[in-house]
């Protein structure tokens, strides 16, 4: 499903002429299969978020290849990347990234609006998704009226609304307490099992990593491990 080959990326920091180069991704190779949950663990600055952002198309790698269902996306321009993301990826962020001036319904239907889906279909689909994440009664609420766990459920609903084959999650439980974290992880596992959705989860939390079918470890830009788990 996702094949990453020889992926490298370098950040340049400091003033021009006195720039310092930091290799954040060093020759990364790995594959993710359809229906897998894969976690990438590592310390802060290990390059795990950069890896996710590169796959998502938020930044272009210096070299290497990223194929999603045999489509090479590493060299996409901004417009191509955006269109590809809309059709293939859903995103879950650590701090939810909901639009504060839009209610739950409007936040969840946003990707459908971008796809040009008619309002009546949007309404139907959002209703189903909100049911799935247990927020049917919160459609009219604004993000600041919800708990962290509820906001993350809205974020998950928004990620799922276009039925993307892959969900990219960056520290999805990083802002949640342990009880809510447990609930969110259960929801992710449930979605994976029932809808066969592929999850790539970036986390520094070893407990979160335990839900994965495979756990990869990043250290100083190098992908170290590929350990298969049986849950």
């Amino acid at each position: 499903m996702i094949t990453v080959q020889s992926l490298s990326h370098t950040f340049k920091i400091g003033k021009k002429g006195k720039e310092k180069k930091i290799e954040v991704l060093k020759n990364i190779d790995f594959q993710i299969q359809q229906g897998e949950i894969i976690t990438i663990v590592g310390k802060s600055g290990s390059g795990k978020s950069t890896l996710l952002q590169t796959i998502a198309g938020f930044m272009k790698p210096d070299s290497g290849s990223i194929k999603v269902n045999n489509t090479e996306i590493a060299n996409f321009n901004e417009k191509q990347s955006a269109a590809f993301r809309l059709d293939n990826f859903g995103f879950i962020f650590q701090n939810f990234q909901l639009l504060p001036n839009q209610n739950v319904f409007e936040n969840v239907e946003l990707p459908l609006k971008l796809k040009g889906v008619q309002a009546s279909i949007r309404k139907h689909n959002v209703k189903i998704i909100l049911e799935k994440v247990g927020l049917t009664d919160y459609a009219d609420h604004y993000p600041n009226e919800l708990s962290g766990g509820q906001q993350q459920r809205v974020s998950i609903a928004r990620a799922l609304i276009t039925n993307p084959p892959i969900i990219l999650a960056d520290e999805p439980t990083g802002s949640l307490d342990s009880q809510t974290e447990k609930e969110i992880l259960e929801l992710i596992q449930q979605l994976n099992k029932i809808d066969n959705i592929t999850f790539m989860i970036i986390t520094h939390d070893e407990e979160v990593a335990q839900i994965a079918d495979r756990k990869l470890r990043m250290h100083d830009g190098i992908l170290l491990g590929d350990v298969k788990h049986v849950i």
């Binding site: 993301r85 809309l86 990234q97």
Partner: peptide, 13 residues
Amino acid sequence: REIGVLKAIGASP
């Protein structure tokens, strides 16, 4: 930030 979110979820430039 809102523009960032829109772009992240697939809004074209």
